[in-house]
Design a protein around this nucleic acid. Structure first.
Lengths: 207, 207
DNA sequence: TTATTAACCGACCGGTCAGTCGGTCGGTAG
DNA sequence: CTACCGACCGACTGACCGGTCGGTTAATAA
C-alpha cells in the first residue's frame, strides 16, 4: 500500500518489515501494551536494530499510521471523484471500505483509540491525516448531496461523522455475525442513513 | 448516585472518596496514565490507604464503573417503562442522557475506550453492565417500535447500537460547538434516526 | 587487500509504577 | 488503664520498559 517495489534497499526493506510488524501488533493491543521488544522480535530484528531505523516508539507508530492513512485517502478519493449521485458515491466509498482486509479496516479505529496518548505536533498531524482520509471525503459527498437537493439541509460535518459512526457499527463483532454478507452490511448503513429507521408512512409524520 | 446517606461509616466514606477521585481522573486520562498515587493524593489518602480498601487498581476501576453503570441503568429504566410511542420514549431516554453532567456522560465512553485492557471475568462483567445500562434498554424500545409498526422491520440490536452511535456523535466536541442547544442535539439524533438524511420525496425512491 | 560506513546486536541504564509490609494512631470494649 | 483492632501511613521492592551505547558484522568502495 506504501510504495511500488522499485528498488527497496536492505534498509528500506527492514524498516518496512518493522512497520508491518508494528501494525499487526498495534491493531491487537493498546499502544502501551505493545513493547518495542515485541515489535522488534516480530520483525526479526533486535531493539537496537529497531532504533537504528526509528527515533522512538512514538515516531514508529506515527510513521505506520500516516503511511496507512495516506493509502486510504487515495482509495477513497476515487469514490469521491467518481460520477453518480451522492447515494452512489457514498455507496462506492463504503463498499471499498468494507471490502478492505480486516487489519486495514481496524486501523481506522486505532486513531480514535490511541489519539489521546499523543500531544503536540504529532497529534495534530495524526488527526489531520485521519480527517483527510475519511470524514472529509464523506463530507464532500454529503455537501454535494445537500447542494443538489438529494439530502435534506443540515450540517455536513455532523452528518459525515454520523455516517462514519454507522459504518463502524456494522463492522463491529455482533453486526458482523448477524449480517454475514458484506453487501447487506452496506445496504443496512445506506438505508438507515438515507431513509431512517422509521416506517415510511403516507403522511410523513412520526409521533 | 450511589447510595442514600444512611450511616456511612468512616471506612465507607473514605472508599467513596477514593472512588470519586478515581472517576474524575479516569475520565481525564487513560487507565495506564492514571497512577494509584495520583488517585490516592486526590482522595487525600496514601497509597497504603487506598490498598487497604481496594485489592488492586483494576478492582478499583471496576468498582467505580459498575457503580456508575448501575445508576445509569436505573435512570434509563424509567424512560423505557414510561408511556408513549417509541419516539417519545427514546426521546426521553436520550434527553436524560444528554442532560447528565459531562463527567457522568463521558463515563460511558470510558467503557469503550478501556475495555480492551481487561480480560476474564472482570471484562465480562463490565461489558454486561454497560450493555444492560444502555444498548439493551434502547433495544427494548426499538423492539416495541418494530412490533407496533412504528419502526421498519430490522435487527433491533444493530438498530440500538446505531442509535447509541448517533448519540455519541452529538456529544463529541465539534457537534457540541455547532449545536449549542441540548434540545437541538436531541432533535438532530432523533430526526436522523427516524427519518434519515435523505430529502423526503413524493416518490419514496433514492438514487 | 584494506578502509570506511551502514546495518545491526544486546547488555545495560534510568525511570516509573503497582503492589507490599512493618509500623503508627485513634477509638473502644472490658 | 490495658488490650485490641481497623484505618491509615509511606518507604521500599520487584518488574517492566523505553531508550542508549559500545561493539560486531557485512557490504562496498578505493
Amino acid at each position: 500500500m506504501q510504495q511500488l517495489a522499485e528498488h527497496p534497499t536492505k534498509s528500506e526493506a527492514t524498516a518496512a518489515r518493522i512497520v508491518a510488524a508494528a501494525r499487526k501488533l498495534f491493531v491487537g493491543s493498546n499502544y502501551a501494551d505493545v513493547t518495542t521488544d515485541m515489535i522488534a522480535r516480530a520483525a526479526d530484528v533486535t531493539k537496537g536494530g529497531l532504533y537504528h531505523h526509528f527515533a522512538s516508539k512514538e515516531q514508529l507508530y506515527i510513521t505506520m499510521m500516516l503511511g496507512d492513512l495516506a493509502g486510504k485517502q487515495r482509495l477513497f478519493e476515487q469514490a469521491v471523484s467518481s460520477p453518480g449521485s451522492s447515494y452512489e458515491r457514498l455507496s462506492r466509498l463504503t463498499r471499498d471500505f468494507l471490502d478492505l482486509p480486516e487489519e486495514e479496516r481496524e486501523l481506522t479505529r486505532l486513531v480514535r483509540r490511541d489519539i489521546n496518548i499523543f500531544s503536540g505536533e504529532d497529534r495534530e498531524r495524526l488527526v489531520r491525516a485521519y480527517q483527510q482520509a475519511l470524514p472529509v471525503q464523506v463530507e464532500a459527498i454529503i455537501r454535494d448531496g445537500i447542494r443538489d437537493g438529494e439530502l435534506a439541509p443540515g450540517d455536513p460535518r455532523i452528518l459525515s461523522w454520523s455516517f462514519v459512526a454507522l459504518v463502524e457499527v456494522v463492522i463491529g463483532g455482533y453486526a458482523h455475525a448477524v449480517i454475514g454478507n458484506s453487501e447487506d452490511r452496506l445496504r443496512q448503513v445506506l438505508e438507515l442513513f438515507f431513509r431512517g429507521a422509521g416506517r415510511q408512512t403516507t403522511d410523513g409524520d412520526v409521533a
